[in-house]
């Protein structure tokens, strides 16, 4: 049922002339995608510094809370631009993106990374007083930082693989893969 809803939503977006114009516009699409990738440098770059500090690998003499507090704003600015340009890119190619297995995994990883960031931030705020000046933070904080880096690595790789058509709906795939990718029409006509 969810697959049908998502596809119907994507097809509705696809009816907008702006969607087609954006997709077919060589420079506008390229500029938006470039901005999306370049703000990754800002967002993920700041996140890398914060997570490396939480792993005890950078700025060992600077309190962890200072690093997190000072880099939070530029990181969130990068994240906001990345999300906005991401939505525009989805709007430009809604149907194929909705039926891309990589896009779906990327969204799941994004949600997981978001939940991890929220839990990590709360856990950090609740306990910074006890380890803020430690060169290497406690294990639970290091695990959260490692998980954050792993999840965002997953977001990057799945984001990049959206461009590949390995598991697109027009390919011959097992029924399970059609289901995961949300290939509604192919599932209906599956032998």
């Amino acid at each position: 049922m969810l697959n049908e809803w998502l596809l119907a939503f994507a097809r509705w977006l696809d009816t907008f002339s702006w969607s087609t114009q954006l997709h077919e516009s060589y420079y506008m699409y390229a500029w938006i995608e470039s901005t999306h990738v370049l703000t990754l440098m800002v967002f993920l770059g700041m996140l890398c510094v914060i997570d490396l500090r939480m792993l005890g690998l950078i700025f060992p003499k600077v309190p962890a809370s200072v690093i997190a507090a000072k880099l939070d704003k530029p990181m969130m600015i990068g994240f906001a631009v990345m999300i906005i340009t991401g939505f525009i890119l989805y709007f430009a190619i809604p149907v194929r993106s909705t039926q891309s297995i990589w896009f779906r995994i990327k969204v799941v990883l994004l949600i997981a990374a978001g939940i991890n960031a929220l839990l990590f931030r709360n856990r950090m705020r609740a306990s910074t007083d006890t380890w803020d000046l430690d060169r290497v933070p406690p294990k639970r904080i290091r695990v959260g930082a490692g998980l954050s880096l792993a999840l965002w690595s997953g977001v990057v790789v799945t984001g990049r693989t959206i461009a590949y058509d390995w598991y697109d709906c027009h390919k011959e795939l097992p029924f399970f893969m059609y289901w995961v990718a949300g290939c509604v029409d192919e599932m209906a006509s599956y032998p």
Partner: peptide, 24 residues
Amino acid sequence: GGVFAVVQMFHLLSLAMLGGMVLV
């Protein structure tokens, strides 16, 4: 293609890390 994608991931992550270090 899978190996290429993983290497590309490292390329993009190192680019992000490089960008972060330059910006900070």
